[in-house]
Nucleic acid binder design. Structure first.
Length: 487
RNA sequence: GCGCCGUUGGUGAAGUGGUUAACACGCUAGUUUGUGGCACUAGUAUGCGUGAGUUCGAUUCUCACACGACGCCCCA
């Protein structure tokens, strides 16, 4: 059997619906902020990332998907989105556009040759936004606020925004040197990883999990002390704008972005969700004023942000955010003989063109099996096409929730469905499951009522539960049976 | 690149160095029910990640590899 590639995932079914939903929210929010969608190639010249992201970064040195194509060109599968956007900005001379700054957003797959773990895959989907051509601290604040608002709109509640500033390139380099000098005499007392980091990535030592309690580290020089006046003013301005926009944040001097191109404002957004793995940063970004010129474009100040959609979806699921995802169909048509089947084909065509979600039987199941199928598909209405009724120009339609059945004229079927599905919409949010009955609300269950599930039985509240014994659990409560039940 | 644990049917899984790999769910068919959701009956892996080794014999022991989960490095 051919398997998917390591660290890659197939996304389908309910999960795919969540991804699509997240995409639509991104589009909606970005439209409000007046960002335009940009789509750049997944493959780029290898040199772009070496010059853009930096030769010392692991992403470029160890983790990139490099190859030569048949023409001998050095190609890399993009490991992140910003470099490609900047390349496109320069190549298409967007700096000459009438509307400045240029505000764009992207949403696509990135590739990193890494060992997979929770929240990290080889193929990842990132959404990101960039403002190119503005040095205004308001643009820094806008990027952060847009990110936070997006997460809020998706339904995430517990967010932690960490911000920091690296200062301009000059103070950044000065600080780096100072830090190395300070740590060097004591480096023996640090963990092995930190000893490695000293020359390669000294700023990372500040954020080391092992040496967090080390007194020497606690007294280490801070980036903020090395800022020149301009950098300090800019950082204060960013905070001021964030305050005005009522975006809560914390200043965390240990936030260090991995990519070489960052300067001034940097930030990370963590999702504080129980059960999240070690990688709980769902989005991060910062200012990169030097990148455009470094890639042969005009001196252009920029700020941007990127977010992993996979982590985002994981956070939404762990937080059990209620998402407006439809998992039911309007009508399931059943039939027994060939004439009825033909009529089903005709009727489906009519109803689908009229805008209803309609399905029927395709595998030759018995009528009994068709009823089961209708339930599996969460059909709101079912209809057994019966030759006799059809000859009378009538159809028997059943509300699958109330179990009420009516015989109506075929001429008014569309009108009937329209009317009754409208009613359905209103209490779609409400769940009517009771003891011993199937949950009507689908898998994202928030039953208020008690459910009784026994070993091996499907939990009546709709979640997958492997109770050892009967449990009486309500929505949001810990399951009394001790199993991993999310009743 | 490093570490730890794992890999048995559509699903959750039990299990053993030796004839037919438990149980449950699901699915399909049948009986019954005025057109299903209950009950009952039957069917549903020639197979235990892949390859090699040990052995008379391996799904069960050993090794390698692949993949999965988690953590480190690094990073969204």
């Amino acid at each position: 059997m051919i398997q998917r590639q390591k660290g890659c995932h197939d996304i389908y079914g309910r999960e795919a619906k969540i991804w699509k939903y997240v995409d639509t929210i991104i589009d909606t929010v970005m439209e409000k902020y007046n960002y335009t969608y940009i789509r750049t190639p997944i493959i780029e010249a290898t040199e772009l990332f070496h010059r853009g992201i930096g030769d010392t970064t692991d992403i470029v040195t160890k983790e990139s998907y490099d190859f030569q194509d048949k023409g001998g060109r050095d190609i890399t599968l993009r490991p992140e989105g910003t470099a490609g956007v900047v390349r496109s900005y320069i190549e298409n001379k967007m700096y000459g556009d009438a509307t400045q700054p240029v505000k764009v957003y992207y949403n696509g797959t990135m590739y990193r040759y890494e060992r997979p773990q929770s929240g990290r895959d080889r193929e990842l989907t990132q959404f990101g936004m960039e403002i190119l051509g503005s040095d205004d601290p308001l643009s820094d604040a806008e990027i952060i606020s847009a990110a936070v608002n997006l997460y809020k709109m998706l339904g995430l509640k517990e967010l932690k925004v960490n911000i920091n500033t690296l200062g301009d390139n000059e103070s950044r380099i000065r600080y780096r040197e100072e830090l190395i000098q300070y740590l060097k005499p004591h480096i023996k007392d640090f963990c092995e990883d930190c000893q490695e980091r000293l020359e390669k990535n000294p700023l990372r030592i500040l954020d080391c999990k092992v040496d967090q309690e080390n007194e020497i580290l606690k007294n280490a020089p801070k980036t903020l002390d090395f800022l020149n006046e301009e950098s300090r003013d800019r950082f204060e301005k960013v905070q001021e704008y964030l305050d005005i926009m009522q975006i809560p944040y914390e200043i965390n001097p240990n936030i260090v972005r991995g990519l070489d191109y960052y300067n001034h404002t940097v930030f990370e957004i963590e999702a504080k969700v129980e059960g999240f793995g070690a990688n709980n940063v769902i989005g991060a970004g910062g200012r990169y004023n030097g990148l455009v010129s470094q890639l042969d474009g005009p001196e252009t100040p920029c700020v941007g942000f990127a977010s992993g959609i996979g982590r985002l979806v994981m956070a939404l699921e762990l937080e059990k955010v209620k998402l407006p995802i439809t998992e039911n169909i309007d009508l399931f048509l059943m039939y027994v003989n060939e004439d009825e089947k033909k009529y089903a084909a005709y009727l489906m065509q009519e109803l689908r063109l009229a805008g209803f979600i309609v399905d029927t039987e395709y595998t030759g199941r018995s009528l009994k099996g068709q009823f089961k199928q209708a339930d599996r598909l969460n059909a709101k209405f079912t209809c057994v096409l019966n030759s006799e009724d059809l000859n009378n120009n009538e159809v028997k339609i059943k509300n699958n929730k109330t179990k009420e059945e009516e015989i109506i004229s075929l001429d008014v079927l569309i009108y009937y469905l329209d009317e009754h599905l409208g009613e359905e919409e209103e209490d779609m949010e409400e769940c009517h499951c009771k003891e011993g009955k199937e949950c009507t609300c689908g898998s994202n269950c928030n039953c208020e009522e008690e459910c009784h599930c026994k070993e091996g039985e499907e939990c009546t509240c709709g979640s997958d539960c492997n109770c050892e014994e009967e449990c009486h659990c309500k929505a949001g409560e810990e399951c009394t049976c001790g199993s991993n039940c999310t009743c």
